[in-house]
Amino acid sequence: ERVRARYDYEAQNEDELSFKKGDIITVLEKDDGWWKGRNGKEGLFPSNYVEELE
């Protein structure tokens, strides 16, 4: 599954994923509120910062 970033997100910890608004992220795992994904790097990000691609 792929999602698009709705906002910029700056990683707060080294296991998190940074991205810019409009970036496409491949979702690897979904957990409550935090998803694991890849966009060149791999890490956790808040699920409310992304939207599913149509």
Rank of each mutant, 00 (worst) to 15 (best):
P46E: 03
T26H: 10
F19G: 00
I25Q: 02
D8L: 03
E54R: 12
E16L: 03
D15E: 13
E51T: 08
V3R: 07
L44I: 15
V3Y: 14
D15R: 14
K21N: 05
E29P: 03
K20P: 00
Q12T: 12
G33V: 14
D23G: 03
N48I: 12
G22Q: 03
E29G: 12
D32Y: 08
P46Q: 07
K30M: 06
L44Y: 15
V3N: 04
D32R: 10
A5V: 07
S18T: 11
A11L: 04
A5R: 02
E10Q: 13
G40K: 09
E29N: 12
N39L: 15
N13R: 12
E14N: 11
D32G: 15
V3A: 08
E14A: 14
S47G: 09
E1V: 14
F45G: 00
R2S: 09
R2C: 14
E10P: 03
K21L: 07
E54D: 13
N39T: 12
G33I: 14
Y7E: 10
K41A: 10
D23R: 03
N48C: 15
W35Y: 08
P46V: 02
L44A: 08
E14H: 10
K21C: 08
Y9Q: 04
T26A: 08
G37C: 06
K30A: 06
V50R: 00
N39E: 04
R4E: 05
W34R: 08
G43I: 00
D31M: 15
E52Y: 12
F19S: 01
S47K: 11
E16D: 04
K20A: 08
W34H: 06
A11P: 06
G22N: 07
W35P: 00
N48V: 11
R6L: 15
F19T: 00
R38G: 05
S47D: 06
E51N: 05
L17S: 02
Y7P: 01
A11S: 07
E10N: 12
D31N: 15
S47Q: 09
E52H: 12
N39Y: 13
Y7T: 08
G40Y: 10
P46G: 04
Y7D: 08
K30D: 03
G43W: 00
S47F: 09
K20E: 06
K36C: 10
V50S: 03
F45L: 03
D8F: 03
E52V: 13
G43D: 02
F19K: 00
G33C: 15
E52Q: 14
G37I: 00
K20T: 07
Y7K: 11
E1Y: 15
F19V: 01
F19A: 00
S47M: 11
E52I: 12
Q12G: 08
R6A: 10
L44R: 14
E14M: 10
D15K: 13
L28Q: 05
Q12V: 09
A5H: 01
A11M: 04
W35T: 05
K41D: 08
F19Q: 01
N13G: 11
D23E: 10
I24T: 05
Y7Q: 11
K30Q: 07
V50N: 03
A11Q: 05
S47T: 07
E54H: 13
E14L: 09
K41E: 10
G40I: 12
G43H: 00
Y49R: 07
G22P: 01
K30V: 06
E16S: 03
S47W: 10
E16Y: 08
N48Q: 14
G22C: 08
E51D: 09
K41P: 07
K36N: 05
S47R: 10
L44D: 04
E42Q: 09
N39K: 12
N39H: 14
F19M: 08
V50F: 05
E1S: 13
Y7H: 09
W35H: 00
T26P: 04
L44C: 11
L44V: 13
L53M: 13
K41G: 11
K21V: 11
Y7C: 15
